[in-house]
Computed example of a mutant assay.
Amino acid sequence: MPFDTRTQPLTAIQARVLATLMEKSRTVPDSYPLTLNSLLAGCNQKSSREPVMQLTEGEAQDALDALRSRALVVEIGGARTARWEHNFPRGAGVPDQSAVLLALLALRGPQTAGELRINAERWHRFADISSVEAFLHELAERSDERGGPLAVLLPRAPGARESRWAQLLCGPVDVQALAAAAPRSAPATGDAVLHERVQALEAEVAALRSALAQLCAQLGVDLPAG
């Protein structure tokens, strides 16, 4: 059965969990696959997220179970704790480059092709904006036999120089409302890569603190202050 979000859309929580796994597989490969605690920290981080969420452990686990039933994530058994990895390109039948763009849209909300190219710097280096647009149009023109579109080009907002793209992992969207919504302010292009690296470091620190808290709990010791 094809991956069809028109009839079986992901929930917002499922999309956040899936996209976070996709992000961390590329930005922190040494810590991947993720434990539930590390995944939760990534889902709830305040940087590079639109909207910011505060998921509970139960909500994240329920989302993982639902995604696993659709072959979009895989549980990797460990000696101490289970870890999770995504299986999105194979489960959804899309190229890795398209998966990167969908995950970025799911994590950060609608973006222009230029913004996506900058934000994807640590995930995948696209040759130019045209290559980003080619993958986006392929997602937007995905055939019914393959499950239908997974991205949509929004109408250009008043005063905007470029149109933004939105993901359809959670089903159809109100394109007019999304187009009219003011995008969050972004750093200047020259500072974008540095900004992205700082955000990634913040996320890594959050994941490490979560792992440390889990280890301290297992050992029965207090988490060091700081």
Rank of each mutant, 00 (worst) to 15 (best):
G114R: 08
L219C: 10
G91K: 05
F88V: 05
L64K: 00
T112P: 02
E59I: 11
D65P: 01
A151E: 01
A82G: 10
T7A: 13
G226D: 10
S163Q: 12
A12I: 13
A60P: 01
W84A: 10
L219A: 14
S130I: 00
L168K: 05
A134W: 06
S130H: 13
N44L: 02
A188L: 13
V205R: 15
R117Y: 01
G226Q: 14
P29S: 02
R117C: 01
R90K: 12
I129S: 08
E115D: 04
A103F: 09
S143D: 09
A206K: 14
L67N: 00
L201Q: 08
A66I: 08
G91R: 06
R142N: 03
G78Y: 14
P9H: 09
G78H: 05
F135I: 09
G58S: 12
Q61C: 00
L40H: 02
Q218D: 15
F135D: 05
P172Y: 06
A134I: 06
D174K: 07
V73L: 07
N87D: 13
F3E: 02
L39K: 00
T35S: 12
F135H: 08
D65G: 03
L212D: 08
L67R: 02
Q199P: 00
Q199V: 08
Q8N: 15
G220V: 08
A217K: 12
L169D: 01
H137S: 04
R26E: 12
E57I: 13
H195I: 07
L153E: 06
E145L: 10
D128P: 03
L169N: 04
A120I: 02
L168W: 06
R80L: 15
K46V: 00
S31L: 11
E202V: 01
E204A: 12
R68A: 15
L105R: 03
V175K: 06
G114L: 06
L105V: 07
E75W: 15
A213C: 10
F88Q: 02
L21D: 07
M1Q: 14
L219K: 15
D222A: 14
M1I: 14
T11D: 07
G58K: 00
C170W: 03
V94E: 03
C43N: 01
A207I: 15
E145H: 04
S98R: 05
T27A: 13
G114H: 06
C170T: 11
L201D: 13
E141C: 05
D62T: 10
V132H: 00
N44R: 08
D144W: 00
V52Q: 12
D222S: 11
A181S: 09
S69R: 12
L178N: 01
H86M: 11
C170F: 07
D96M: 15
D30V: 15
H195E: 14
S31R: 09
Q214M: 08
L178M: 10
A188S: 15
A207T: 09
L105Y: 02
G77P: 04
A207C: 12
L150H: 03
L39R: 00
A186R: 14
G58Y: 02
G58F: 02
V205I: 15
L72Q: 00
P9Y: 10
Q167P: 05
Q199Y: 09
A15I: 04
W123E: 06
Y32Q: 01
D62R: 05
A179L: 13
L64G: 04
V73D: 00
P183C: 07
